[in-house]
Simulated scan of single mutants.
Amino acid sequence: MIYVTDDIRIDEKEIEESFVTASGPGGQNVNKVASAVQLRFNVAANWSIPWDVKMRLSRLAGRRMTTDGVLVIHAQRFRDQSRNRADALDRLVALIRQAVEPPKPRIATRPTKGSVRRRLETKSHRSAVKRTRSSPVDEE
């Protein structure tokens, strides 16, 4: 059992790991040994993650979340399989912990009088510059 928070737990049976050959440095070893880890976790089927956390998690995961609600994490940072397994699991736990934190509500603010004045002065200055570029009007 993996304890993410006090309320959220993940059973190891819910995590599916597959090992593939990694790209990048490693010499001949990279072609022979499947050291990269592809971790798959079905978020939609997990019972301990609340619905609102699942929604935030899917938004945070982006392309790593499939349409079926499966989160896929690919770890190949290290040359050995055990460190990549630990890295993938750490990234999964960190992502869920980040989704647990509710976003801070936005507090509506108003621009200061000085910033409004500067914006309007800049607009009028720019307008005057453009007005001088125009061709003169014949007045008869």
Rank of each mutant, 00 (worst) to 15 (best):
A94F: 04
K123P: 00
A75L: 09
R119N: 03
F19N: 11
S82K: 15
P25M: 08
W51Q: 13
R56W: 14
L92H: 04
V53D: 06
L120T: 03
D6C: 02
K54M: 08
R64L: 12
T5F: 14
R85W: 01
R118E: 07
A36C: 02
S135D: 14
H125I: 05
P136S: 07
A99P: 15
V129T: 06
A86V: 01
P111W: 09
V100L: 02
V20Y: 01
M55F: 10
T5G: 08
L57Y: 08
I96R: 07
D6N: 15
E101K: 15
H125M: 11
V4M: 04
A61Y: 02
A94C: 04
S23F: 11
E139W: 11
N46Y: 10
E17Y: 11
I2L: 15
D138A: 06
I15G: 02
W51L: 14
P103A: 03
R77L: 11
S135K: 15
A94P: 05
K32N: 13
A128T: 08
R117W: 05
G24R: 13
V116C: 05
E17K: 11
A22N: 07
M1P: 05
Q81T: 05
H74K: 04
S18N: 06
I96W: 09
G26C: 12
S127M: 10
T21M: 06
F41I: 08
S18G: 03
N42E: 09
T112K: 15
A44T: 06
V116I: 12
V116F: 02
Q81Y: 11
L71E: 10
V37K: 04
V53T: 14
S124Y: 03
R133K: 15
A36P: 04
V70N: 07
M65D: 10
R9V: 14
E139L: 07
L95Q: 09
P102K: 10
K54V: 11
A61P: 12
R85A: 05
W51E: 14
H74Y: 12
K130M: 13
V72E: 06
S134C: 03
A88D: 05
F19A: 10
E140V: 12
V37E: 02
R91D: 02
R56Q: 14
R79F: 09
E139Q: 08
G114T: 09
R9Y: 13
P25S: 02
I96D: 03
S58E: 07
Y3V: 06
G62C: 05
E121V: 01
P105L: 10
I15P: 00
G62D: 00
R77V: 07
V30Q: 08
I8M: 10
H74A: 00
R83W: 00
R131H: 09
E101P: 09
P136A: 11
K104P: 08
N84Q: 09
T66I: 08
Q28V: 10
E17W: 01
G26W: 09
P50A: 02
S35Y: 03
G62M: 00
S134N: 15
D7L: 04
R40H: 03
P103Q: 07
V37R: 10
R126C: 02
I15C: 03
A86Q: 08
G24M: 07
Q98L: 08
E17H: 02
K113W: 03
S134F: 01
M55A: 12
E139H: 12
